[in-house]
Design a protein around this nucleic acid. Structure first.
Lengths: 337, 337
DNA sequence: TTGTAAGCGTTATCAA
DNA sequence: TTGATAACGCTTACAA
């Protein structure tokens, strides 16, 4: 397994290893002719610089950390996908790490982690991106990081996010355009940053349409199927039943569909149902769910890109990405509209 | 950022760096007294060995690769979770890599990857675990690997898997015990290794119960919701409708439930529905899905453990893990039973 | 524009 | 049982 090193390349190209290094790192002041010789030798030998040696000798490690809380969530795995893609294109690699506070000494764990493996930067997914102890430690070590959709403390580091309020506004607008007037809304988990934003988008759209929102139309939820189930029962049990229900995420929207079916009603004929997230389940129900697709994969890609190449617009510390309104079968014209 | 190195520890403990190294690597021939001094210095200084330096100087890199095809699948992210956990406990880290054959030179990509980052081993998830070009390249580099639930070529490297036939046998048995006799079965994707095994388990259970299987009871599918939908329509449209349908995965089982609802029937009152996988969606439908839980997280954990500590039983090249039959609301007594 | 020599923080060799 | 000292493969001063 004697692997090909920079020395072999230097020997074959008839130059010093320093020159090879210069070519590989795209440094200036290398004669075109020399450069070609080196590149030819690299290609002929199939040489690849060793990551560990690079990391040891320089400040760059070509390694990016992806710090999780719940690694099994589909949101996070989409994020990872996007980050991986960007890393691969740029010769970087991803080390994943679970920061879920398990057995005790969390602080030491993170410090060990950072002391052990040298990284060029870290991507922080929610809710890890909001843990101040994590941010503090990264700052201490001067390790760059990008936060994905943080809930607060926006001044701390670059962030990648989308406009939740606007997305909810647009979805409500979609329902309004179908002739719906009595539109129910199920809120998300109170501690999640998106919850008030989505709620506000709904309220703004209703206000702009000149509709007075009946307080009963807005029900609490916590993003779980179960909570959506209860909320849907309350909504659809109202004397004047809403003709559409907009749930703050897909799990709860699915619960609404379940309640609709149990009541002997049908979506979208009697009740239109809309969700948020475009989770995999959104396409594995019948009718398929109208929802908002978050640019999760793109968020991962952009986060990695920021760490590798810097912010696209250095005057801004955030990157705002577009969502997409996905209209499927679960929403339709209001009854009698 | 001057980090704490082995030299600091050696100085503080009043020994040479080699001795520190010996203690840290649990080598023999270190006096108990010296060992204690070193450990005390390590603790006092909060010293953590640098990964890159280790990888460069030794054969061990404390790094395990996790090679994917589709990184966004919930199956794979569960696997990753398990592997991460084991790695964390043993001071290892995981580098994830997407091997989906994208833009052309796949062979070179993998070679670059292996030449660039030194790993102690690789976990191969399906379907990557069945790609002979990948196995060949790993063998060439003498890089250990573990295959997760491979479909063929079992002689090539250690593998971690579960008994799909037995699981399908047990699920069919569950339906039989509820009094069902006309039990439909939806097959999976033909190229997936689990497909014939699950089918066989169903057939064996029916045979053992002395029931002649009507050929119409077995319908093709390909693991997609859509394919399950078609299969369910054919099954439930039979003159003598099956009272239970066992789908080879959860997505297709959900499609069965959708068809049941569309026909104005109800599960499990009119038709019992069973799935396979215990995907997240299994709990986000109503009624919740009776299914088989694969030990996916455990598979990841065991795979990592094999790479770190070797096979538990060196006389066997495989580890067989237990599944679990999860009975939820979608299955019930046969009508009139 | 190119090369020499000195690290980077470990482990491995071999002598003490 | 311990310790100098030389790798490991690369980058970074500093010269030439």
């Amino acid at each position: 397994m004697a692997s090909i090193t920079i020395n072999h390349v230097a020997a074959r190209a008839g130059v010093s290893i320093k020159t090879v290094s210069r070519v590989l790192n795209r440094e200036a002041h290398v004669q075109e002719r020399t450069r070609e010789k080196v590149l030819e030798a690299v290609a002929a030998l199939g040489y690849r610089p060793n990551l560990a040696a690079r990391a040891l000798a320089s400040s760059r490690a070509y390694l990016i950390g992806l710090y999780y809380d719940n690694p099994a969530a589909s949101y996070v795995s989409d994020l990872q996908f996007g980050a991986m893609e960007t890393c691969r294109q740029n010769g970087y690699h991803i080390i994943v790490e679970d920061l879920a506070d398990g057995q005790g000494s969390q602080k030491n764990d993170l410090d060990s982690l950072l002391a052990t493996v040298s990284l060029d930067g870290v991507i922080l997914t929610p809710p890890v991106c909001d843990r101040l102890d994590v941010l503090d430690r990264l700052d201490q070590r001067r390790l760059p990081y990008v936060r994905i959709a943080p809930a607060a403390h926006f001044e701390r580091g670059p962030r990648v996010h989308m406009d939740d309020r606007r997305a909810a506004y647009d979805m409500t607008g979609h329902l309004l355009s179908l002739g719906h007037r009595r539109i129910g809304f199920i809120k998300g988990h109170l501690e999640h940053s998106a919850t008030p934003l989505r709620h506000q988008g709904y309220l703004d759209a209703m206000a702009d349409a000149g509709i007075a929102v009946n307080p009963n139309w807005v029900q609490p939820g916590n993003f779980s199927f179960r909570s959506g189930f209860g909320a849907a029962e309350r909504l659809l049990g109202l004397p004047e039943r809403p003709t559409a229900v907009f749930a703050s995420n897909d799990d709860m929207a699915l619960a609404v569909m379940a309640v609709v079916n149990r009541l002997g009603l049908s979506a979208p004929r009697d009740v239109s149902v809309a969700g948020f997230d475009d989770a995999p389940i959104a396409q594995v129900v019948w009718p398929q769910l109208t929802t908002i697709r978050q640019p999760v994969t793109q968020m991962g890609a952009v986060a990695a890109e920021i760490l590798i190449k810097g912010l696209p617009d250095p005057s801004r510390q955030d990157v705002l990405l577009d969502f997409k309104l996905i209209v499927r079968g679960s929403t339709g014209p209001a009854p009698g509209a």
